[in-house]
Design a protein around this nucleic acid. Structure first.
Length: 650
DNA sequence: CTTAGGG
DNA sequence: CCCTAAG
């Protein structure tokens, strides 16, 4: 097996999925002032929401959905504050298309761990000394038996950005999606005037090329969905507008019109390998999307308050994950590499019906017409990822995820492109700019650009950003279903493969060559999104500068212990006792890098608990009673043993 | 860094 | 799983 050869994946484009219209809120309505700046902000807003809940998945997943995902998902919060615009003249309807993207569940084919030594039921104190005997390699949950199949690469060739908030209910086909959209339209459009609808298109899959270099053809700009016509039709709702907007259901949210300030504590990071990364990531501070000029209600407050109360800290930290935008530390050198990200999008300006003759116009002299915008999707131009060849698919996913997060979570601002030209004047109205109902099929593009006000960290690099050059709009016309289907076709039966391909939630598990990875773990974690537009930046910021830990760690994905693992754990504990988790880890899970001794300790805790409750109350993969019995036995034994020790000490 | 526990 | 207080 190749040792730690590195793969570099360059993602030329990345389609941002449709916006989830979660239960809690992906819908909002804002009254806004209609000028270019606002358009940007809206686009940005959407992205902001999106940014917080992406999750990279292998599109190879043909498997089932898994509700367990829900636990790890980022709570969809109405993070998007309702911006109260002064003297709003127009109402903007923000409708986020539902995005119940099929969450590929994960089907864990538990690695067949072999060679588990027979466990000796007899426990003797001697055994507790040093497990000299019986600690053969095969005894470990090693990876010896596991192999990475070359085809594994296949998996990595496709990736999809999925909303992290995938629901159990999946959309089997586009139909449902469309239905929702339509409902949404018919639902609001008629009454709410001057609606500007933003609707993210379905998630698209990019199809990476095989081999080390994965890059996407940057397709030409704006390609509209096949159903564009229909969409346009749908949005043909009257758009006459009146000043005052009925805030009906908005009232509910009006209470929190102003976003709850997000605070983030900042604390020193201990150095502990993975943990360290996690911690860092966990403590990344989030920031509300900050717009230049204080126009943006969600003024990015860069809180760094410290919480003394740990519980509150924890909670807040969690809750903050709802916040779409994370703030990048200025002092983080990595910033540069992300700063020049751009996300372009395809958007169409749909004319609203010309109701110049309508009732509204009768009442009002010349009611400004409203424009309905449909943002097909934002595309993250390119991501550059470097990852160990022996990294697992799960790692790859994370890497991609982090890269994407880096792009979406950076200090960005939205740029507006009209017919390929950048619209610079933020004060102009849409009309003045040429975005109006008359301007039917002109493509309106939204691009993410580094926010000048935040690129101070690296003026040099940021200056390289070709802000004035309209970026090509990239699109990968693949419907969600197509993607599913296609990928499924592309990736043959996983069953035949040596490695169980875990569909959704990650999977380095025992399926990965963790052993090999061990030494280079940190490296494999390194990924640096690099803009294709900014070659120079590459020079300035070497790709392999893996140093800076990525700031986008999420809660570790849940990896239920397999029976084999439990078996190994029980066996180890029986031998070593309950107070030597480090040893247990070394002994039985040395090669399972994702199982820390704390994890093992926790697992033992739950095992004991599980063993004590009735089988009916147990959940998850059933653990053989035999094992549970051993758990209780061992637990009892060691508890007593421990007690004795303590007595001795006293 | 490890343990031990609470969340 | 996460987070921490204590060794």
């Amino acid at each position: 097996m190749v040792l730690n050869r590195r793969l570099e994946y360059g993602f030329n484009g990345y389609q941002v999925p449709a916006m989830p219209r979660g239960t809690r809120s992906a819908r909002r309505r804002n009254s806004i002032k209609k000028n270019v700046e606002d358009s940007k902000m809206h686009a940005f807003d959407l992205l902001a929401t999106l940014a917080g809940k992406l999750l990279v998945g292998n599109s190879s997943s043909s498997s089932s959905s898994n509700s367990s995902t829900k636990k790890d998902q980022f709570p969809v919060t109405d993070s998007t504050s309702i911006e109260e615009r002064r003297q709003n003249q127009f109402t903007t309807q923000l409708e986020l298309q539902a995005c119940d993207q099929a969450s590929c569940g994960r089907s864990m084919l538990d690695p067949q761990l072999v060679s588990q030594k027979h466990h000796d039921p007899k426990l003797s104190p001697e055994d507790t000394q040093h497990p000299v005997m019986g600690s053969t390699d095969s005894e470990r949950l090693g990876t010896d038996e596991l192999r990475i199949d070359k085809r594994n690469d296949e998996t990595s060739r496709n990736a999809v950005v999925e909303p992290l908030t995938s629901t159990d209910s999946k959309l089997e086909d586009d139909t449902q999606n469309e239905i929702k959209v339509e409902q949404l339209h018919s639902d609001k459009a008629p009454n709410d005037n001057g609606a500007v609808m933003y609707s993210f298109r379905d998630p698209v899959v990019w199809d990476a090329k095989p081999l080390m270099q994965i890059s996407l053809e940057s397709g030409a700009a704006a390609s509209f969905p096949a159903n564009k016509d229909r969409i346009a039709h749908d949005s043909l709702s009257p758009a006459r507008n009146v000043e005052v907007v009925s805030r009906d259901d908005d009232e509910k949210s009006s209470g929190c019109t102003h976003p709850v300030p997000t605070k983030k504590s900042f604390r020193p990071v201990p150095h502990i390998g993975d943990r360290r990364i996690r911690k860092v990531l966990a403590s990344r501070h989030w920031k509300v999307a900050l717009r230049s000029k204080n126009e943006f209600p969600r003024t990015g407050v860069n809180f760094k308050a410290d919480y003394k109360d740990k519980s509150s800290y924890y909670k807040r930290q969690r809750s903050q994950r709802n916040y779409p935008f994370k703030k990048r530390k200025f002092f983080d050198i990595d910033f540069e590499s992300y700063s020049d990200k751009e996300i372009s999008s395809n958007a169409a300006v749909y004319p609203s019906e010309n109701h110049t003759d309508g009732d509204v116009s009768a009442k009002r002299p010349s009611p400004p017409a409203s424009v309905k915008l449909r943002i097909e999707s934002f595309t993250v131009p390119e991501l550059f990822i470097e990852i160990s060849e022996t990294a697992t698919i799960g790692s790859l996913k994370r890497a991609v995820m982090e890269a994407v997060s880096g792009v979406l979570g950076g200090e960005l601002r939205v740029g507006v492109l009209l017919q390929g030209k950048k619209v610079g004047d933020d004060s102009k109205t849409l009309l003045q700019t040429g975005i109006s109902q008359d301007n039917q099929l002109n493509s309106l593009g939204f691009a993410l650009e580094p926010d000048p006000s935040h690129t101070s960290a690296s003026p040099k690099v940021s200056s390289l950003f070709p802000c004035d050059v309209p970026q090509p709009l990239i699109r990968y016309p693949i419907g969600p279903n197509d993607s599913q289907k296609r990928i499924h076709d592309t990736l043959p039966e996983h069953e035949d493969m040596n490695i169980p391909i875990v569909a959704e939630n990650d999977c380095d598990m025992a399926t990965s060559p963790v052993g090999v990875l061990k030494k280079g773990t940190t490296q494999s974690k390194a990924l640096v999104p690099v803009s294709s537009m900014n070659v120079e930046a590459l020079a300035v910021v070497p790709v392999h500068r893996k140093s800076k830990r990525s700031e986008f760690a999420q809660r570790r994905i849940r990896r239920p212990f397999s029976v084999s693992e439990v078996e190994a754990l029980v066996q180890a504990v029986e031998k070593l006792g309950t107070g030597r988790w480090r040893d247990v880890k070394l002994r039985a899970f040395d090669s399972a890098k994702h199982r820390t001794y704390v994890d093992l300790k926790d697992k033992w805790k739950t095992l004991v608990h599980t063993a004590r409750i009735s089988p009916q109350q147990r959940r998850g993969e059933p653990v053989p009673q035999e094992l549970l019995d051993r758990v209780l036995t061992a637990h009892a034994y060691w508890s007593q043993h421990q007690a004795k020790q303590q007595l001795k000490h006293i």
